[in-house]
Simulated assay, not measured.
Amino acid sequence: MDRLFDHPIITVATAREWLGLTPAGTNQIVNRLEGIGPLREITGYARNRRFRFDPYLRLFEDGGEAER
C-alpha cells in the first residue's frame, strides 16, 4: 500500500513486481483491493488493465473529498 502513494496508477504486472507473487496471486490481491475500494480499474479492458489509487488521487482533483 505504501508504494501506491508514489505510484498511484498501476498495472497488475507492477503489483506483481512489488509483491513478488505469482500472476494469479497478484490478481487476487488487486481484485480484492478493487472490491473494497482503494483501487479502481480505469481502462475498461479485460487485459492490460490499469488501476488508480482512487482515494488518494481524489485529494488532488478539483473539490477534493471535502466537497463530495
Rank of each mutant, 00 (worst) to 15 (best):
A13S: 14
F51A: 03
R32V: 12
D54E: 15
L57C: 11
G20S: 11
P23R: 13
P55T: 10
Y56K: 06
G25T: 05
Y56H: 13
P23D: 06
P23G: 03
E17A: 13
A24K: 15
L59P: 12
T14C: 00
A15P: 03
T22M: 02
R40E: 12
E34F: 04
R16C: 09
L57Q: 13
Q28E: 11
T14D: 10
I36P: 05
A13V: 14
Y45C: 01
L39C: 05
Y56M: 08
N48Y: 09
T26F: 03
G44I: 03
G35Y: 05
L57T: 14
A46H: 10
L57V: 14
T22R: 12
L39G: 01
G44D: 08
Q28W: 12
Q28Y: 14
N27E: 11
R16L: 10
E34L: 10
R32N: 07
L19K: 09
A13D: 15
D54H: 13
F53C: 03
R16P: 06
Y45T: 01
R52V: 15
R32D: 08
L33S: 02
R47N: 08
A15H: 02
N48I: 08
T22C: 06
G20W: 10
D54W: 12
N27F: 05
G25E: 06
G35V: 06
T43Y: 00
T14G: 00
Y56Q: 03
R40A: 12
N31W: 01
L21C: 07
L59R: 15
R52A: 14
R40L: 11
I42S: 04
L39S: 01
R47T: 15
G20D: 09
R40K: 15
E41N: 11
G37Q: 07
N31T: 03
G20P: 15
L57R: 13
E17Q: 14
R50P: 00
V30D: 00
E17P: 00
R52G: 03
R58D: 06
N27M: 12
G44P: 10
G37T: 09
F53H: 06
R50K: 15
A24G: 08
